[in-house]
Design a protein around this nucleic acid. Structure first.
Lengths: 112, 112
DNA sequence: GCGATACATTGACGAACGTCGATGTAGTGC
DNA sequence: GCACTACATCGACGTTCGTCAATGTATCGC
């Protein structure tokens, strides 16, 4: 390891593996999918809108502030629900969303 | 607000705005870009590999365990560096990466 | 100078994504 | 039954992404 810090050109000194990987492929795939749900500004604003509200938010209140069409908002909300970041409940004609902090906590733990 | 919880069809009871948004468009765009850097399994494994190592990791040690070609690894590392998640230092022929925990801490704070 | 090595960049390709209009489905009120 | 509303799904489009082989650039030892 000490030999690896020198600025030389010996290939052997460089390319011995540092250590065995700590995040296996399956976990990486799952985590990546969760972070992908957070990788769109519209979804982040939708999530922020819901988490900052105390209690539930009606889907009908998400279209106008997001500045996107109703099908697009529905598409994004499905991604957030599938990622486990919000829960969805249909009552009558309307759909109500609620923050699901457990998944956010899990992601936060991964980053720490 | 109490009227909004009933399962009726009165449009006025539904569609008054809940509250003003808390995450503006510029912040959302910036955050989304950071999370996008974490939304690929290969990048997560590369990042995990580097953060779990004490000190620096040579770029030459990232190609083989990632199972991707050298240009692809270089591409992913550039994304991680641009996102501020790792730092890059060239010494001689080799490039050394190091974890930059500040950005990860910031993202963790956002999730909390 | 020359040859070899480590990494970045380019260009191309298919796949996945975000978006919308149009349409489908389920629920309400009459 | 019918008309209306809220939301989901479908199909299409342009854009972005991940990937590689080929090539370029910088550095080393000679």
């Amino acid at each position: 390891m000490a030999a690896r810090t020198k600025t030389a050109t010996d290939p052997i000194a460089c390319c011995t593996p540092v250590r065995t990987d700590s995040l296996d492929e399956a976990d990486a795939e799952l985590l990546a999918r969760s972070f992908a749900a957070l990788s769109d500004p519209i979804r982040l604003r939708l999530l922020s809108f819901i988490t900052s509200a105390d209690g539930e938010v009606c889907a009908c209140d998400l279209v106008e502030p997001s500045g996107r069409s109703q099908p697009t908002v529905s598409h994004h909300m499905k991604i957030l629900v599938d990622a486990g970041l919000v829960t969805r409940e249909k009552r009558g004609l309307w759909v109500w969303y609620q923050a699901a902090p457990a998944r956010l906590d899990a992601l936060r733990a991964v980053l720490g």
